[in-house]
Design a protein around this nucleic acid. Structure first.
Lengths: 234, 234
DNA sequence: TCAAAAGTGTTGACTTTACACCCATGA
DNA sequence: TCATGGGTGTAAAGTCAACACTTTTGA
């Protein structure tokens, strides 16, 4: 912030009205929490019970606490909602149209997160919270659809050259599962041979010398992400 | 924002203390304004006269106005500082460590901007504002160095596949100027023949059938960006 | 024995990099 | 005539997309 802004800040402290104008703005974070199940990319949403958005779903978010770093707030939200810490979380952007929140001015910073649905499954106690198939989400409360789309776009870009998507999978996975995951993220079908070639070129995977079981067809080999490549935040 | 947050918001309105805790946070925008001159990438900085940052330079920024969209604020800042509107401006990220501002809690959203130094040259009246060579900037007030680095990184990525850098050049330019610009942004030398091939592959340029003059060597052809490709914001 | 998916290579198109010479201009 | 940069092409390496058959397993 510049000198002028600071002067204004001091002036604001003297003049109550101006002060309230400048500071009567809420700051929140919203989390776009992606999961992967049954070959579909999912997003965790909560029922909005704001009157203006009756029956609409919205992202998980909260006002930031006064003595909490901005980038720490989404970890708190995730911990409260899913019981997980040590998750992948990345800031995507801030949304601050004057009229975006019907109850007053709220500027929000959006984060996207990738979690393994099975790991946190038992920890969601709040039954207003549900997984939705990303491709089927048409409309959300506030500007949350726009925020979700921005996060999805970021995920697509990032998935192409950084080993982030493994946060969505169990520790051991087959190449088929990995390919299904990429297909659900990118929304396109991929050629199996080319996909395997490309993945093996990246040297992200460690061959476990184990096979799938409980599959109704020929089992594939299992892999895990090489140690040291797990990304929690970039 | 979720229901709980809203409830808290309403509670906050009733209880003054909590209200002040939650809302006594300043929100600012900071602009990383890049220019290009004498084969060097420049950034526009202002002298900080905060006691804590005596003799340090800082980014141009301001508190956002109460009834102004977040993404509009940097346009206002630029207009005030350089007299320019219709500039390229893009949000890069938000920075909100509790202690980032010595005078109180301020969360800032950073934008990067690309402007043609010659166009605005005469409009800077504030003589506390100066251009600095990006490569020579070692330290700035607040966390502004970190912010500048984040913006530079974004610029580097974006310059590679979108026609954004033309905002830094005069309307007519030679391929040498364009190559010098790319080199200053990326911080590497490029092969002339390969650079020209790559640029011509992008089909961004319109050959003006004019030549440079006032150069102490063989003049090169002049080009301009094809109409319709000028990017102000993405 | 059938259904389902595993596993595996090659070719052609395209992209990227490295590299060197002659030319036009102004000083 | 010299210094400076303008302008240009090719070959080798690498990357990307398209494409099909045999194998293994469980039901």
């Amino acid at each position: 912030m510049t000198t002028e802004a600071l002067n204004r800040l001091k002036t604001a402290e003297a003049e109550k009205i101006t002060h309230l104008d400048y500071f009567n703005i809420g700051i929140s974070v919203d989390c776009v929490i992606f999961g992967f199940e049954k070959k579909e990319l999912k997003v965790l949403l909560i029922k909005s019970d704001l009157e203006e958005f009756a029956d609409k779903w919205s992202l998980l978010g909260d006002l930031i606490d006064p003595f909490e770093d901005l980038d720490s707030a989404p970890y708190r939200v995730l911990k409260q909602r899913t019981g997980l810490d040590d998750v992948f979380l990345q800031q995507v952007g801030s949304f601050g149209e004057v009229k975006r929140h019907p109850s007053g001015r709220v500027i929000t910073t959006a984060y996207y997160s990738l979690i393994n649905i099975r790991n946190h499954q038992l920890k969601i106690t709040d039954n207003e919270v549900h997984w939705h198939t990303v491709a089927d989400v048409k409309d959300l409360a506030f500007d949350h659809k726009k925020i979700m789309d921005a996060c999805l776009k970021r995920l697509r870009v990032q998935a192409m050259d950084e080993p982030v998507v493994f946060n969505l999978l169990p520790e051991k996975f087959s190449l088929r599962e990995l390919q299904d995951l990429y297909q659900s993220i990118l929304g396109i079908k991929l050629d199996r041979r080319n996909f395997r070639k490309k993945i093996s070129l990246k040297s992200w995977l460690h061959d476990l010398d184990e096979m799938e079981n409980n599959v109704p067809h020929r089992p594939g080999k299992l892999y895990k992400l090489k140690t040291g490549l797990k990304t929690t935040t970039l």
